[in-house]
């Protein structure tokens, strides 16, 4: 049984508009039998945080193309993307590139 973990979520580049304009979220993921991974986190975000138009944030079981993901300040493409196993105190950033200026 994995213990609950506390992580920091940050939304930027316009992605925060889907979360009531709130950029920073400190959340605790409940205890579950398996360790949390990014794929499960995306489902959790959809069920618990996403306020509107989920199709602008997720596509299939991943983020919508054009939304960049950083895990502890590194491109998630270097970290195993959906398979990355979350650790306590991780910092996850989602930045939309789809918004204009």
């Amino acid at each position: 049984m994995a213990a609950p973990i506390a992580i920091h979520l940050e939304f930027g580049g316009g992605a925060e508009l889907l979360f009531n304009g709130v950029k920073d979220h400190r959340v605790t993921l409940p205890s579950q039998s398996e360790p949390w991974d990014m794929k499960q986190l995306l489902v959790w975000i959809q069920e618990n945080l996403l306020k509107e138009r989920p199709e602008l944030f997720v596509q299939g079981d991943s983020v919508r193309p054009g939304i960049l993901v950083l895990i502890n300040d590194a491109d998630w493409e270097l970290m195993g993307e959906l398979e990355y196993q979350l650790q306590d105190q991780d910092n996850i950033v989602f930045i939309s590139t789809l918004h204009g200026g």
Partner: peptide, 11 residues
């Protein structure tokens, strides 16, 4: 992002 440049994004 890494340079912490100040930009504005909206629809």
């Amino acid at each position: 992002y890494f340079k912490k440049l100040d930009y504005f994004s909206t629809e």
